[in-house]
Design a protein around this nucleic acid. Structure first.
Lengths: 220, 220
DNA sequence: CGTGTTTGACAATGCACGTTGTCAATCTAA
DNA sequence: TTAGATTGACAACGTGCATTGTCAAACACG
């Protein structure tokens, strides 16, 4: 009965989120997962080839949820602000995406451990997946910037790097937030994440205008 | 002879950088470390209680080097630019610190794996250390901002969060850089890292002036 | 020289885990 | 009811590793 198999698989994923999300990937064993899911080892191998495979499945599941929510929010936000200036479109679009991300983490901080911390340090296979997903988010950010400031591809400015930096700032702020027990109010976190986008948005025209002046290069 | 012990310890640290920095902490065994160092297991336990202890020692060593170089560069840069406006002091100070960081990574990318990737996902003990060090860098960044823009502690702006974000952008850009084989030119990476600081610096006065307006809050 | 310490190679132990297998209990369907 | 599939508890095997121990060679120094 394939229904039953899928249900067990789902149970395993729930147990995986609990185990990986609280103790971290490398502190978890197959037996623990099975105990958490109320199943025996046999049913683990029924659905997953290894712990890594389970982790990958969980990671992909979480990312699917987040991506779907993000895209939905972006579409909704875009509809509401089609005729605004660049500055307030940043507020609306980046704000909507950031809100979804932070809610996703706040609603279940175990996700942060899985998606933001462990995913990048496990085996090569998982790093491959995480790298791919990171690139997707970078691409989203890059297009976002590119659309708002078509003149941004000026000399010396690398949109991929800026996008990577923005992504990194979100990731780091979110993990730091979780690590401190979410004690900083949600809106404060959101505002300050957004402030970095806003600052870059405000600064961008200047960047595009100037030729990115050489900095003093004291003794390489 | 205590000289000999210290020398073996140093050999182990060299081997640790190679092993941890290329294959990652969890893919490394005591035996591999010993083989890499040309020593036998006994001398491992002579200097370290466990692989984790070795990793911690390596991590602290690398951070000591980086911190020392960073502070030296900041002092030197500060001396050269004591009488400039805020904007160019950002260029000089943040540029100097960023240059040191990126050189540190470029000169030996294995350090990135140890310091930026693995350190945050290993056992609780190591995470404690890494959290402490992260806080140090955040504190440095925070003071840096605070000094340049004393009016920055305005309503809704959390300097810790901004500092965390800046740190995260540097970390993410650096790891991304390494992951792509350092193919992006050094100066481009530096400029774009710096651009985020510059953007925030330019944006800060506006932030402090306005009351951090409420963003539209579409369906929390 | 020769004694005691340091070194190097490696065997031995023990543990934790992944993985597969056994077997009886339970459920399903005719 | 009964044959066959499904389930659950758990034993069994093999592996890989950390950690400790053995022993002989090399060395340091009186």
């Amino acid at each position: 009965m394939q229904d039953r198999v899928a249900q067990r698989r789902a149970l395993l994923l729930v147990a995986a989120l609990e185990a990986f999300g609280t103790r971290g990937f490398h502190a978890v064993t197959v037996r623990e997962i099975c105990a958490g899911a109320g199943l025996t080892e046999r049913y683990f191998y029924e659905s997953f080839k290894s712990l890594e495979a389970l982790f990958s499945a969980l990671y992909l599941q979480l990312n699917g949820q987040l991506k779907q929510a993000t895209l939905a929010a972006l579409i909704a936000a875009n509809a509401n602000s089609s005729a605004s200036d660049s500055s307030s479109r940043i507020d609306v679009l980046a704000g909507a995406a950031l809100r979804v991300l932070l809610e996703f983490i706040r609603d279940d901080p175990r996700r942060a451990r899985v998606m933001l911390i462990d995913a990048i340090s496990i085996s090569h296979d998982v790093q491959q997946i995480s790298g791919q997903i990171t690139r997707e988010y970078m691409e989203l950010t890059r297009r976002f910037i590119d659309q708002l400031f078509p003149d941004a591809a000026s000399r010396g400015v690398d949109l991929d790097l800026i996008a990577s930096g923005l992504l990194g700032s979100n990731i780091h702020i979110a993990t730091h937030w979780v690590r401190e027990g979410l004690k900083t109010p949600f809106d404060v976190v959101l505002c300050n994440c957004l402030a970095i986008y806003q600052a870059l948005g405000a600064y961008w025209p200047k960047l595009a205008a100037s030729t990115m002046p050489d900095k003093p290069t004291p003794a390489a």
